[in-house]
Amino acid sequence: MLIELKNVSHIYDDDLKGTEALKDINLRISDQEFIGLVGHTGSGKSTLVQMLNGLIKPSSGSVIIDGVNITGEKTSLLGIRRKIGLVFQYPEHQLFEETVYGDVAFGPRNLGLSEEEVELRVKEALELVGLDYEEFKDRSPFNLSGGQQRKVAIAGVLAMKPEVLILDEPSAGLDPQGRQQLISLLEYLYNNKGMTIILVSHRMEEIARLSNRVIVMSEGEIVFDDSPARVFSEVEKIRELGLDLPEITEILWRLNGKGLRVRTDIFSLAEAVEEISRELRGSSKC
């Protein structure tokens, strides 16, 4: 499925100053991409992702999904939302049903599926996020821990079987273990389920580790759109934009600056350890 944005600009109706939340965005997203979308607060990331599933219509320009211009008057947004799942920030705030089953089943039921099919989907979605179906299906979502509630909310989106999954800061507020589980889930959905994933995150190490394309936004514009290695080599510019570098990159970059000729395009701890010890050549000083 192809998502295409052509000359998209957006001004919120209630913005009296008329600030452009998005300025002339052109973007193509193809199947099997894992996109990391970054930018500081107010850069336009959230506006962009809401546009991708039709929650916001652009003030000008067009959003074309699977060949259909969804900015047109008569487009069925239900069809779009079936294909493109959006996990909002703090999605657990939107849980509302009495049972975990009911909450995850809500979307599939709205698609008019048979109850057997709904049940199958709920089972599968809960398993994907690591919640045991029998143990959790009848529990109230409100008596679960924050981390478990987040999983239920994500399962609700997965039960729609979207082709594209967009997640806005999905790891915010999770403990390290919860974060690790989420990362594994995204890796699984991408590698084994063939989903296209768009991840919005302030955690650059997540972005660098997971994505194969990084889009950096600032003041409503796309300032970088390239591989993680290329984007995070723009050290000065990234800092100027008020963003962090992945910590590994920061360390490798600083060592490089001190004369240890290590590569700076490495994002995993194990590889960084190899690289540094190789460059040190048995010494403990550079």
Binding site: L255, L280, S284
Partner: peptide, 10 residues
């Protein structure tokens, strides 16, 4: 990070 870099490359 400062302490690590200083200890390796002082």
């Amino acid at each position: 990070i400062n302490e690590l870099v200083d200890s390796l490359c002082s």
